[in-house]
Amino acid sequence: MPDDPAITEAELYDLRHRDAEREDVEFYVDRAREADGPVLELACGTGRVHLPLLRAGVDADGVDLSAERLDRLRGKARAEDLDPAVREADMTALEADRAYDLAICPYNSLQFARTLPDLRATLSNVHDALGPGGRFVFDVFVPDFDVICETYGEWEETTVERAGETYTVRSRTTVTDPVEQLFRVERELLTPEGDVVLADASELAMLPKRLVEAVVDASPFAAGSVAGGFDGDAIAEDAATQVWTLERAGDG
């Protein structure tokens, strides 16, 4: 095994997404620039979206459950002379100390609210963290049953490069509760010699459109709409992503 320090889960996340092309970063930065006040990012992680917000001069705060990921975000921010205001917090029990004009939750992270009470609590907490007329924007994937049938339960492999060494990343997604539509993502990191040096797993909930719609309708938000991607087009049967915008009522 190489002599470099062990790869952490937070570093692995960055390595896996280093070359990823996803339209959400530009989308969320644009939404933040349009905001009339501060912005709150849920599940800000290692800063994939949060650092571009800070680079754009956005007054942004961030919360995440992982202290390790937040430490990595802070380290990257220091290297760019940025000063992030991020803290460890659970979005299902969120308490805000100021009113935000915009809250965002990128890249399927709302799916970590695995139960209906957790999902309802998250929407209620975000609503309370927004000022009058504030918006909550998030994206979740559209469950694709062709993909589920063809790939779930099977290990898939990719590679990442680190310090001149090629590591293998094995991942497997399995449905753990078909009735509740919960699924588990397992991931292992293997050295060039084939030794497993990092393993983690997480459980998430599938959030089909009509379930999200029902929870939104029962939430304190005054209005909600969904697009079929980051370009704003109407959602259609071939959409891979749901992009939701919820609005808190304005003054009066």
Score class of each variant (00 low, 15 high):
E188A: 11
R87A: 13
V226S: 06
E247M: 10
Q111M: 09
R135H: 11
E156F: 01
G232D: 08
A205Q: 05
L116P: 06
P106S: 07
L110R: 01
G224N: 02
L40S: 12
I7V: 12
L207S: 03
A20I: 07
E68R: 10
A227N: 15
G228E: 03
K76M: 14
G252F: 14
L82H: 08
A79N: 13
L207D: 02
V49L: 15
G224D: 06
A85T: 11
F27H: 05
T122K: 07
V160A: 11
H17P: 02
Y13Q: 05
L51K: 05
F183T: 03
S124M: 00
V39M: 09
L110Q: 00
E156D: 09
F141W: 10
A218I: 01
V147G: 00
L190H: 13
H127V: 00
T92L: 02
R187G: 06
E150S: 15
A205R: 14
L65K: 09
F145K: 05
A79P: 11
Y152T: 03
E247I: 10
D61M: 03
R98C: 11
E247N: 13
P192N: 08
V142L: 07
L123R: 06
L110V: 02
R162F: 06
P220F: 00
D64P: 03
E88S: 13
W155P: 07
A60H: 03
R18F: 06
R120M: 05
L198I: 12
L102Y: 08
D14V: 10
D144C: 11
D144R: 07
L53V: 09
L207G: 00
T176S: 13
S171R: 12
T176L: 06
G37T: 02
F27T: 04
V63W: 04
L110D: 00
G45Y: 01
A20L: 14
Q242A: 06
R55E: 13
A93W: 04
C44G: 03
R120I: 06
A56T: 09
F112H: 14
D4S: 14
G131S: 04
K209N: 09
D217N: 00
R78G: 11
D238I: 03
D217F: 00
P143L: 14
G232Q: 03
I148P: 10
V25G: 13
G153N: 08
D90V: 07
P117L: 12
H50S: 04
F183G: 10
S109H: 03
E156H: 15
G133L: 04
R74I: 13
G47A: 15
D118W: 01
